[in-house]
Amino acid sequence: MTLTPPVLRTLVARALASRPDELSCGDCETCVDRFAEMTLAGLDTREALPLVEEHLRTCRCCGEEFEALMVALRACSAQPHADG
């Protein structure tokens, strides 16, 4: 693999968008359950938890796990008495 121009372009854009106050994966993990329940309830997460929203958008692993969690929660809420 070489650092091809399209890959480097992504890197430059991502580096220039980096901010000191970004959440780490661990920080995101501590907030994501509430974020998921707010999303499920149709509440405005972007306003309430913007850094979580940003981390989920830019971190592929956390974003993938969040999408899967939402699929699971939606399946769960479609079942009677399944929400604990």
Binding site: E29, D33, A36, E65, L69, A72, L73, C76, D83, G84
Partner: peptide, 9 residues
């Protein structure tokens, strides 16, 4: 959050 949400995550 609900415990079951945490457990599913």
């Amino acid at each position: 959050a609900r415990f079951t949400t945490w457990a599913q995550r």
